[in-house]
Simulated scan of single mutants.
Amino acid sequence: MKKILVTGANGQLGSEIKVLAIAYPNFDFVFTDIEDFPLDQEEVIISNFKQIEPDIVINCAAYTAVDKAETDSITADTINHLAIATLASLCADSGAKLVHISTDYVFDGSSPIAYTEEDQPNPKSVYGVTKLAGEMACLKNCPESIIIRTAWVYSEFGNNFVKTMLRLMTERDSLGVVNDQVGSPTYAADLAQVILTILDSSKWETGIYHYSNAGEISWFQFAQDIKEIGRKTCDIKGIPASSYPTPAERPAYSLLDKSKIRAVYGIEPIDYKVSLQIMMGKLLKNQ
């Protein structure tokens, strides 16, 4: 039985992997989070890794406070880059496989078409810079890694755009939502299933892959869909990103091309609205 170490297990993706883990009795999951596997403490990473002795590591942990990273770059780099370098080296030395989660923020958003894995990264934020550095360290220290870039992640667990919109639509009569940043959302449960499908397959094709749900929308359209499914009456207005300045620059266009993961693993991305309806159904049922 293969032992799988999951870091960041209390986050959105880690929590969804926990839900699905019961369907994979052939794997022995070890779920850890910041309390028992802190990525900002190298000595603890090393000692805990050696104690657990995993066959596979799924790294869901990251410094994801995008705006805060602009003034907290040392912590962001420690968690998103240096810790990944350490983790990748440990995997390489022990023969363990590593699945590392990255982001669309490694791109600058200037492309007119969906980004492929071959496109040149050019991050515009500290968060994006540290995540790209983590990717590079991962591939350098453990060439047997799989990196999955994703975007706009949401889940019934944790804090995310969907939950924030539902709350604001309940509290306010009108909302302004950015309409000139385009991409595709990712339901964390779908990404969790993708990862476990890869691990359960007979293939281990290393390198970088892109995965998000299918579709191409703006945050404004995403909010409109949330309003429709949640049956809210709040008036949603589209606004330019320039009207909602943030410390960290967001990529204006960060749609991810999923051709590679489809070709290699036969994974067909689910339409974003189908997944949004499923997630919101769970969320609203539990309210």
Score class of each variant (00 low, 15 high):
E268D: 14
Y211I: 11
V129L: 09
A137N: 14
P247T: 11
Y187E: 08
S89P: 01
N122R: 11
L256I: 10
T78C: 13
I4S: 12
A133T: 03
D108Q: 04
I4L: 12
K273R: 13
V182Y: 15
T71A: 14
T246E: 10
A92F: 13
D67T: 06
Y63W: 13
N10G: 07
V178L: 08
F157V: 04
R250L: 09
I208Y: 02
H81L: 06
G238R: 06
G128W: 02
S218A: 14
S201L: 11
T75I: 12
V162M: 09
V30L: 05
I101R: 02
G215W: 04
Q277I: 07
T32N: 05
L255I: 13
L256W: 09
G128F: 03
N160Y: 00
D225I: 00
V182A: 12
V44E: 12
L276M: 15
G128I: 05
S243V: 00
A96V: 04
F220I: 00
F29V: 06
N48G: 05
P143W: 05
N122S: 14
Y272F: 15
A263E: 13
L255V: 15
Q51C: 13
E35T: 14
D180S: 12
H100P: 01
V129I: 15
G95Q: 09
E228Y: 11
D200C: 10
A85S: 07
N26Y: 13
Q287K: 07
G11N: 13
A214M: 10
L13M: 10
E171P: 01
L87S: 05
V19D: 07
N160T: 02
F37T: 06
S110I: 12
I84T: 13
T103A: 05
V106L: 07
G95E: 08
K50A: 11
C138K: 00
W204N: 09
L132Y: 02
Q12T: 12
V153D: 00
V106E: 03
T130G: 02
I195W: 04
L191V: 11
K131A: 02
D36M: 12
S201G: 11
N213F: 08
D235S: 05
G109W: 02
T197R: 13
D77Y: 14
G266W: 12
T32H: 07
A85W: 00
S15F: 08
L168E: 07
I239C: 10
I17Q: 05
A133E: 07
S111Q: 10
D33G: 09
Q221R: 13
G158K: 03
I45W: 04
F37V: 11
E117W: 03
G109I: 02
S275V: 03
L13V: 15
V264P: 03
I4D: 08
G128R: 01
N141M: 08
G8M: 12
P143R: 05
I278R: 12
S254H: 13
I52E: 05
M136G: 00
R231F: 10
N286L: 09
S254N: 11
R262D: 08
I195Q: 03
A61R: 03
V194S: 06
N160L: 04
E118N: 14
G109R: 02
A92E: 15
S275N: 07
I58D: 02
L5W: 10
M280D: 01
R172E: 12
E205Q: 12
G109A: 09
E16L: 07
V274R: 03
A62F: 05
L20N: 10
T103V: 05
Q41T: 11
A263M: 04
S94L: 06
Y115A: 01
S155V: 02
M280N: 03
P25R: 11
V44N: 08
